[in-house]
Design a binder for these strands. Sequence first.
DNA 1: CAACCTTGTAGTCAAATGTACTATAAGTTA
DNA 2: TAACTTATAGTACATTTGACTACAAGGTTG
Lengths: 230, 230
Amino acid sequence: MAKDFPDAIIDALSIDCLIFGFKKSELDILLVQHGEGISKGKWALPGGWIKYNESADDAAGRLLQDLTGVSKIYLEQLRSFGDVNRYPSKRVITIVYYALVKPENYTLDPGFTASDAKWFKIGDIPSLPYDHKDILEAGLSHLKHKVRHEPIGFNLLPKKFTLLQLQELYEAILGKKLDKPNFRRKLMKMNLLVPCQEKQKDVSHRAASLYRFDKKIYDKLTEKGFTFEL
Amino acid sequence: MAKDFPDAIIDALSIDCLIFGFKKSELDILLVQHGEGISKGKWALPGGWIKYNESADDAAGRLLQDLTGVSKIYLEQLRSFGDVNRYPSKRVITIVYYALVKPENYTLDPGFTASDAKWFKIGDIPSLPYDHKDILEAGLSHLKHKVRHEPIGFNLLPKKFTLLQLQELYEAILGKKLDKPNFRRKLMKMNLLVPCQEKQKDVSHRAASLYRFDKKIYDKLTEKGFTFEL
DNA sequence: CAACCTTGTAGTCAAATGTACTATAAGTTA
DNA sequence: TAACTTATAGTACATTTGACTACAAGGTTG
């Protein structure tokens, strides 16, 4: 049985990753250029085959790292895409994972399997193979909804950030201006942000207090019925 | 290639269905008793194998019908579960679908593969095989969230319903009592319900006004930025 | 019929929250 | 020091929420 060969793959099942990046008020998507295989030379979502001895979650992390050099990010499962003809020549169902990151935190490295890896502006995507266009659209609409109901935006800021940085991030994502005192009050009342007892440095104006986001605190709050809303 | 044999199955990939039912202010889940296979005699989520010539969505519908007789319902994909050891003896990743229905609309019929199919109260579930317990919990928490942010609960009521019926539905799903005057005020302010200009009949108390839900009105409201929230 | 159920519907009121401001503090730069 | 930038506090008002009361509209019971 295939399970006894740790590197054997499940050939009816693949993984694809939607890695969204946020930079200068612009949303980007990470694509790789395949060095081999059916869609050689085409830009596509980073993805590949699941091994028998790894979970789907682990496979997503491994494939992303191998193809792009991006590692240690929190990938969440979107859903699977299982139409009969989505992949040519054989039947493949794909499980799609996604994440939202800061592009400048990662150095792209195509590794062995991919010939190139690059960020593309969401409004300027090359033609994609298979059903990757559908997958991207499904992910995008999911992301827009999610960012308002869960604190995933914090990934996009430095570990320590000011309230104004946070506000500007949400203004960019939501596409509208927010009131500064009200925004800060709302955030502070959530008891979600941890004060770093520290201030900005080297700024040409009054330094703002720095805060950080703590997932443990968020988890504890949600257990008590708290829901993040912006 | 397996694809050339239409009935061949993808043996590393299964489907499971979470069919939630709502009856007498109680949330139920539909389980089947396996007539054969590893978990013979145990109650489990209805599920099975995907064929090479059918989409995952189609497979979910077919399996549900074969095992329970329940057909023509709108199944939505939850996500897949892909831990290495979730299934004994071989590596199987499962794609989970869910739906919310009115049990009295369906006659259960276990068909050939299952020996029995039955509704279980959500608070009174037998021990489940594999990771079905985890799947059920994931589905339940997804459902609780979804039902509060989208008007899917209306499927469970008759076309014309009273505000109290609607309230009882939400009390059952959310698992808590709601205040009657406040609930009605909130709903009425949404301008979502259409009054039928009609009252209940044959009730041994004051008859309540009947309302209906109109998807077109909901769609129009959401376009204008309205979001359903309970 | 009256007294008494049950359920429907309207209203009140205080607390919490949201929104649009103003004011002041703490730094930097010219 | 004056002007400027950003941080942070506070204020006033409208809206929403949550708990609760009151009353209306039937049917049922003695």
